[in-house]
Amino acid sequence: MKKSERYFLAAGLLTALFLAFMVSPFASKAPDGLERVSENHGFNIQSGPVWHSSLIPGYVFPGIKNRILAKGLAGAAGTLCVFIIGFSFSYIINRRKKGKLSIVKRIKEEQPETKPAGIQEGNDNRNR
């Protein structure tokens, strides 16, 4: 990959982090489309969340009093988290494709950690 391409990709990631950290605390707090419709038509009574172990519920970083900082940190943490999952997922898949056997065995054990993890967790929860 050329240098200019690397710079462009790095700029993309920095833009995402900037948006999440600096801009998202100032985003509109009004209810979104579905929330608005559910409020207007009286079906916004939820059963309450089933999953209680979210690390950063509601995009507010826990333990930080400043709301702007809490939301910015939550956004940056989520952006990095999603980037790392997406990058390592495609990195691992690409390595496998090339048939680099030394790494394949290790990855086979790690693989549930990458992409299908979320889906499987969803499944477990549903069966509970």
Partner: peptide, 18 residues
Amino acid sequence: VPLLGITAAFVFAAQMLN
């Protein structure tokens, strides 16, 4: 490979901007 991660990061960040 990097594009996939960066697209995911951008989509996540931009989804926060109501």
